[in-house]
Design a protein around this nucleic acid. Structure first.
Length: 588
RNA sequence: CGGGGCGUGGCGCAGCCCGGUUAGCGCGCCUGCUUUGGGAGCAGGAAGUCGGAGGUUCGAAUCCUCUCGCCCCGACCA
């Protein structure tokens, strides 16, 4: 045990330094896969005794799992501190009024986890802390001389996810590092944004992750620019569209060109047709014997309370993120039937652009080359054939509101794009003055004029990163931790702990490694060798040192690298120095 | 929220359709002895409101109603 007090230990550099004995530690491993887990990381985290579920989307971090969390946090702290960020801690609970100031009490929706106190006063459990941090800064920072600076915290966050899944990958309570930067202008923000981006790359490199930063949509957080860091993983929830020219963006954000398939045709006269009960593109297409791309899909939305009509080629989908962005709307949703009827004069399923008035029309580029296509007739059971944009309805301009995917063309180089799946481990945003404006957070510039802070925010999912690491570091036997985040550097596996010589050598090695500053776990259980070997593979400590009668006969231990399976004998004399060297090399 | 599935000792499951002694099996756990280089053997043992409530019945894990929880697909979402 270190002489440091609890506080000192809690905040010391790499944190977890105490060594442990398996027999005294709660490491509840399981032989069988848990029935409810689907993904590799979720199964292994449960089997290896890292986490236990308390309720849907809410997890206990058991000692082994918590050590990993602490190591990831330590890396994050080092990299945040390296670029000059200041750590602080904000409360989990924040008053509704603060969220009402920015409008997010409503905009954030059901995902915002609300609670009330005994007096009925309402609060939010923090899903992110723009409001709170902005409140601190508007109260405490007055002058441009104090800028720029960045505050961060590592804290438990709450999001009442519509569907928690994959263990801690999408949890309702999770651990996140969130940082917020404050600037006098965009240039300063850009500088910090770049520094943060680079720091994130270092963090994920140190976690030995294969990842990719991609352009992202801004969602409920808002702001002008954003990147997500995606860890490559087939079971990831996010889809990224990529081009070999280097372009990469989330499917929510991706821009691209939809290949034209419209042959050149002369415009034909417009012709209404009866389409009884044909409400979907599929219905109409089949009923009239017309390919889906020869239809225009007309969808009515409500954006910040105002109806908007969006048009796109029939075989494609609207990207609501892009649409909201172009409209400058913070909330967008498909219009309820009553609104559709009011706007188009017809029930849902028969909307079309011809004769539509008094509503804003957003037309995707894919509509421009279309000739003689089918659209809804804005009347029950009626569609119209041979419609041509410009002639039959007017278009102010074409925009890009299409959901882009694999197979579409890159806007930058024209090549066909591909896609991959990933886990989003972090997202960074240029917020601009979105929050400082609504919360009236200002500083005085050199002319004595009050200016809104220009802000950036930078999230990084700590618990999710742990899961992502396992997704990329496991084999059929268990986890294969990278040294940087492994719960322990070394596991001593005492094959027959009852044997006096084995016990003596193991104990000596254990205390010597501890003294050398190595995180070491001693499997001192009186179990059969098979159990111990299987458990060692499962929990995945990078270096395993086996102490057994077999080796001791020739004065040797056995060292095995978990990830590579590389294995060799190690003379007892000098073993500590050798192991220390290997650990240090791996950490360098 | 729509669709699907599942709740039976700590874990994984059988039993339910077709109601009937003390509710089983494997793993794990406890005690003892033997064993110890890849999930040991023998003997003994502890542990289950069968998710909950109500109902049907002489009798319910099993049938009916309601309800809670969990998981999967979808919609949605830093």
């Amino acid at each position: 045990m270190s002489a440091a007090g609890p506080e000192e230990r809690r905040f010391s550099g790499t944190g977890t330094r105490e060594a442990m004995r398996w027999s005294k530690t709660l490491i509840p491993t399981h032989k069988e896969d848990p029935s409810h887990a689907e993904t590799t990381s979720h199964k292994l985290m449960l089997r290896a005794g890292l986490i236990r579920r308390l309720t849907s989307g809410v997890y206990n971090y058991l000692p082994l799992g918590w050590r990993v969390i602490r190591k990831v946090e330590a890396i994050v702290r080092e990299e945040m501190d390296r670029i000059g960020c200041q750590e602080l801690l904000m409360p989990v609970v924040s008053p509704a009024e603060l969220w009402q100031e920015t409008g997010r009490w409503d905009v954030y929706g059901k995902e915002l986890w609300r609670v009330h106190d005994r007096n009925g006063r309402q609060f939010a459990l923090g899903p992110t802390h723009e409001e709170v941090v902005t409140d601190i800064v508007r109260n405490e920072v007055r002058s441009y001389r104090q800028l720029p600076f960045t505050l961060y915290q590592i804290q438990t966050k709450f999001r009442d996810e519509i569907r928690p899944r994959f263990g801690v990958v999408r949890a309702r309570e999770f651990i996140m590092k969130d940082a917020y930067s404050f600037h006098r202008d965009e240039d300063s923000l850009n500088e910090t944004y770049k520094a943060m981006y680079d720091a994130y790359c270092r963090i994920f490199d140190r976690c030995d992750l294969s990842y990719r930063p991609v352009e992202a949509a801004t969602g409920a957080i808002g702001g002008s620019a954003s990147h997500e860091f995606m860890v490559l993983c087939d079971t990831g929830e996010s889809e990224v569209i990529v081009c070999e020219c280097g372009y990469a963006a989330t499917d929510e954000r991706a821009e691209g060109l939809i290949a034209d398939i419209m042959p050149v045709e002369d415009p034909l006269p417009i012709e209404p047709v009866d389409t009884p009960g044909m409400k979907t593109i599929e219905d109409v297409s089949e009923f009239l014997g017309v390919e889906p791309w020869r239809l225009i899909k007309t969808i009515v939305y409500v954006a910040d309370g105002e109806p908007v009509v969006a048009l796109i080629r029939g075989d494609r989908d609207i990207n609501e993120e892009k649409l909201a962005g172009l409209l400058g709307a913070s909330m967008i949703e498909a219009a309820p039937p009553a609104v559709v009827e009011k706007v188009t004069g017809a029930p849902v399923g028969f909307a079309g652009p011809v004769g539509l008035s008094g509503v804003r029309l957003m037309v995707d580029r894919s509509v421009e080359p279309l000739r003689n296509v089918v659209v809804g007739g804005n009347a029950v059971d009626v569609h119209i054939r041979n419609v041509n944009a410009g002639r039959d309805f007017s278009v102010d301009g074409y925009c890009d509101i299409a959901r882009i995917g694999k197979g579409d063309l890159c806007r930058k180089c024209g090549k066909t794009m591909d896609s991959f799946r990933g886990i989003e481990v972090s997202q960074v945003f240029k917020l601009g003055t979105k929050y400082s404006d609504s919360m009236k957070a200002t500083f005085l510039n050199e002319n004595g004029k009050a200016m809104p802070f220009v802000m950036g925010c930078y999230g990084l999912g700590i618990s999710r990163t742990m899961a992502a690491i396992i997704e990329q570091h496991s084999d059929e036997y268990g986890i294969t931790w990278p040294m940087s985040v492994a719960p322990f550097d070394v596991e001593i596996l005492a094959v027959k702990f009852r044997n006096e010589e084995v016990r003596e050598i193991s104990e000596r090695l254990y205390s010597d490694l501890k003294a050398a500053g190595i995180d070491v776990l001693l499997d001192d259980r009186h179990d059969s060798p098979g159990v111990k070997f299987k458990d060692a593979d499962l929990i995945g400590i990078p270096i395993r040192v086996t102490v057994g009668e077999r080796g001791l006969k020739s004065g040797a231990l056995e060292i095995r690298m978990r990830e590579t399976g590389e294995q060799r004998d190690l003379p007892i004399d000098g073993a500590v120095a050798e192991i220390t060297k290997i650990v240090e090399e791996a950490k360098a």
